[in-house]
């Protein structure tokens, strides 16, 4: 599983596909990480917990 930011989702998909992992489980979080307050980044992380669990335990779509 890979975590990326929303703005780099397409790039992440392309790199994953080029490495033979087109079905890689990818989680997107807010953008940008650099320059965003720790409080907001922590909120993004909290918001992503459920999807992270689903991606790690669920069936691949």
């Amino acid at each position: 599983m890979v975590i990326t930011t929303e703005s780099f989702r397409k790039l992440t998909e392309q790199v994953a596909a080029s490495l033979g992992h087109a079905d890689l489980r990818i989680l997107s979080v807010g953008h940008p990480l650099g320059g965003t307050s720790e409080e907001i980044v922590r909120q993004w992380a909290d918001d992503a917990v459920e999807e992270t669990i689903n991606l790690l335990t669920g069936e691949r779509i």
Binding site: F8, K10, L11, Q14, V15, S18
Partner: peptide, 10 residues
Amino acid sequence: AGATPGTGDA
């Protein structure tokens, strides 16, 4: 190489 702006070139 696929270095296309927006997909392979960020």
